[in-house]
C-alpha cells in the first residue's frame, strides 16, 4: 500500500513556481520545460496555480528581502510531503547579486532545499532532472 502511494507521488509531481527576484532567465526555462520539445507533463509534472495543490516548490532568484516572508509563507502553505528545488546559480549562492543590501539569500538559509540545479540559467532538461531527482529522493 505504501509502495503504491510513494510511486504515485513520484509519478505526479505538481509544481508551484515562485520567482524570488530572478532575472526571468530561469523562469522562462522552467516554462520552456513544459513546452512540446521537453514536455514535462509526460512525467506527470503540471504547473499549478495555488501552493495548496503543489508537491514541488521551484524557487528561482537570489531571494530579495521583499520576497522572503512570502517564500516562507508559500512554503508553509504547501501540504506535506513536499520537496523544494532551487533552480539557477542565484538561488544556490546569490551570485552575482551577493553583497547587495536587499538580498537575503542564499535560499537554503531560509527554507530547506532538496535539490540544487546549477546553471545560469540551467537548461530545461536539467530542470526536469532536478524535479525528478527531488521527488525520488524525498518521496521514494
Amino acid at each position: 500500500m505504501w509502495k503504491i502511494a510513494s510511486r504515485s507521488r513520484i509519478k505526479s509531481p505538481w509544481i508551484f513556481h515562485l520567482n524570488t527576484g530572478s532575472c526571468n532567465g530561469c523562469d522562462i526555462e522552467i516554462v520552456a520545460a513544459l513546452t512540446p520539445r521537453y514536455d514535462a507533463e509526460r512525467l506527470g509534472c503540471v504547473l499549478v496555480g495555488s501552493p495548496r495543490h503543489a508537491d514541488v516548490l521551484i524557487l528561482t532568484g537570489p531571494l530579495t528581502s521583499q520576497m522572503m516572508p512570502r517564500v516562507v509563507r508559500v512554503y508553509e502553505q504547501i501540504p506535506e510531503p513536499k520537496a523544494v528545488v532551487a533552480v539557477g546559480s542565484c538561488a544556490i549562492s546569490g551570485a552575482p547579486f551577493l553583497g547587495s543590501y536587499s538580498i537575503e539569500g542564499p535560499l537554503d538559509r531560509i527554507i530547506p532545499v532538496d535539490v540544487y540545479v546549477a546553471g545560469c540559467p540551467p537548461r530545461p532538461e536539467a530542470i526536469i532532472r532536478g524535479i525528478v531527482t527531488a521527488v525520488k529522493r524525498k518521496f521514494g
Partner: peptide
Amino acid sequence: RRIGPPIIQPFYDFIKLLVKENI
C-alpha cells in the same frame, strides 16, 4: 504535438492527493 502523460496519470494524481496532508 506533445507526448503527454501516461493514460493512468489521473490514478497517480488521485492516489497522491489522497495520501497528502489536508489543510
